[in-house]
Design a protein around this nucleic acid. Structure first.
Lengths: 339, 339
DNA sequence: TCTTGGCACTCCGCCTCCGTGAGTGCCAAG
DNA sequence: CTTGGCACTCACGGAGGCGGAGTGCCAAGA
């Protein structure tokens, strides 16, 4: 009961601070939320909460501001699920249903997510490594150049141009193509090395260097996490918080320019009801200490294939943003299944 | 002689303002540049320059700041070419020589350009419409689904999945594939409609709906300026100018999110020694009134295929940035020719 | 043991005021 | 046309002075 009110106070502080971006005091708190006690009582609770590290004062005789720990507790135990508004649902449908191909789905998703959350949005392309190969094609461009095309069940297509060490007979190419298809179709990317291992032996000694060149290109395509492509959108939202943003937005923009960083943000997804929240210093990335990242995985045929999410200031509307991210991820999964 | 000194004064004002980002006064001017006359004389020149609209005062009794018109005159008549420094040249080589494929060239170029100019960089993918088709491939995924792959001489590969109205016999597909290759190889995209026009007639009536579906996909690929893809980098540089940036960076970030806007910026390239400069209000885009855009075309086999460039505040180092953009464009052309 | 009103205290934010100095325009003399 | 002199303007920065929001503590009441 005592403990309970303290949590209610923390919740109220988070909600008010997110709404106003200003330190919140005891008096304002009892006025806006009917807590049924006096400001003095609240002050006692606040002192306790501060002692425990959930809130802090920017300076003496100012109101309180939630700490990262405070937001964490809020997200874990205090925030209910805020259902999306009807217009938001409609926006999701309208936006994504018109997508014509995978590129389109990805770019529409990132714009959609940025728009409804009013934050920076990240969307990762379906991962190769978690997908299966649908088809492999070899097309000769010239005597010594071949283009390798790999088609994956999520709709992704990856190509790579191969320079052969010597002229490549059409017959050999045709043979290799059909063998590759047999060896790889339906396989996951992790299985590629095993699948192509013995391929070379089926060919005459003369052809082997050529075959080897092509096989190694296939292997590289599988190994190289070329797949891990992330699209970014809504960076303009960062500039919305003039001085209100804890620090300069420059380090944030810099961090977001690095594909590696984006992957790291989306990568480590520990599932909490499908949505992961990383708050402030919990982020594994330098420059994003004063931002929170909310991500969710999306799936194809119930197998997770990649993640999407948003980056925003720690003082964001967690319930609303979490359900938006969740909803978009689910809807993207549905779109992928339809195709 | 009189006219000449006035221009020298304008040049000095632009140079000082670009260096300091602070309004420049008559006294500081004679101190830093040896103009051989007294501040009072400079003041007369300044009054004349202001009258003509080349400079302005932020407020009474402040120094002068160049106007868009002033920068324009500076760029057109006053700025010499500033050669790149050795480290910059080296950076260009190191950065771009390692590129393995077109995607890699594009992403390296945008990072390079952002790094050496310290501005936001834009790089457009080689345009389909200005390229010729090297190869066309049709691969069946299932009975009714085919993937169309178009390979272009700049190294770009575009694919599209086609849903056929009925099952597609392998023989028909093979026939169509070879006819398409004959009809399209070596053609420019503008010629595609003519080239495929009569294709349908070679097939049996039963097959025609299928053929038509595929041909129209080919046409769409050619028509749709899907090609016009632009990559963006270095947005963090926008945040460098804290309050120094004329206005908020938000509208700039917003404008740069729109692919259409990026294309417009890169599109209208009126050649001035290979480099185009658009200053402040000369920009055809809302939100970029206080930025300048510097672009250059790059080529493959001496035919321009696309543009690249940078966006920065109007008070930028024009000579240095122009030669950087120019140099990178030329080097990208060279890389494309090598492949 | 918890709650509450009272009270003194702190300190940020904001306003005003004023001095300083950089910069200007004008003018008359060279 | 150039130059030094001069009066004028105005942004900027620091000092000072409130006002008010917010706190912590305490003693009394439930």
């Amino acid at each position: 009961m005592l403990e309970e009110r303290r949590l209610a106070v923390l919740r109220a502080i988070v909600e008010d601070y997110v709404a106003t971006h200003e330190p919140v005091g005891s008096k304002a708190l009892v006025e806006r939320h009917n807590l049924g006690v006096s400001p003095a009582t609240i002050r006692n609770d606040m002192a306790a909460l501060e002692e425990e590290g959930f809130i802090a004062q920017p300076h003496t005789s100012a109101g309180r501001v939630p700490t990262d720990l405070g937001y964490r507790l809020f997200v874990d135990r205090l925030s209910g699920v805020k259902p999306l508004s009807a217009p938001e649902r409609r926006a999701i449908h309208q936006f994504l249903d018109d997508a014509v191909d995978l590129d389109d789905v990805m770019s529409r998703t990132v714009r959609l997510l940025a728009q409804i959350t009013r934050q920076v949005a990240l969307v990762q392309y379906p991962s190769f490594t978690r997908s299966t190969i649908r088809h492999v094609e070899l097309v000769s461009l010239s005597a010594t150049r071949v283009i390798l095309v790999v088609i994956v069940d999520t709709g992704r297509v990856e190509q790579r141009i191969i320079d052969c060490p010597a002229a490549l007979p059409e017959a050999t190419l045709a043979d290799l193509r059909s063998r590759l298809i047999v060896a790889l179709a339906g396989k996951g990317f992790a299985d590629v090395p095993d699948a192509v291992e013995d391929l070379e032996e089926a060919f005459a000694a003369d052809d082997r260097p050529l075959v080897r060149a092509i096989v190694s290109a296939v292997l590289e395509t599988a190994r190289e996490r070329h797949d891990e492509r992330v699209v970014l959108g809504g960076t303009a939202h960062l500039a919305r918080y003039g001085e209100a943003f804890p620090i300069s937005i420059q380090p944030v923009l810099e961090a977001l320019e690095e594909q590696v960083v984006l992957l790291r943000l989306l990568g480590e997804t520990t599932n909490l009801q499908g949505v992961t929240v990383r708050i402030g210093h919990e982020n594994p990335v330098e420059g994003l200490e004063s931002t929170s990242v909310i991500t969710a995985q999306y799936a194809r045929s119930d197998h997770p294939v990649a993640s999407l999410g948003i980056v925003g200031p720690t003082h964001m509307d967690y319930p609303g943003t979490m359900s938006a991210v969740h909803a978009v991820a689910r809807y993207v999964s549905r779109i992928l299944d339809e195709q």
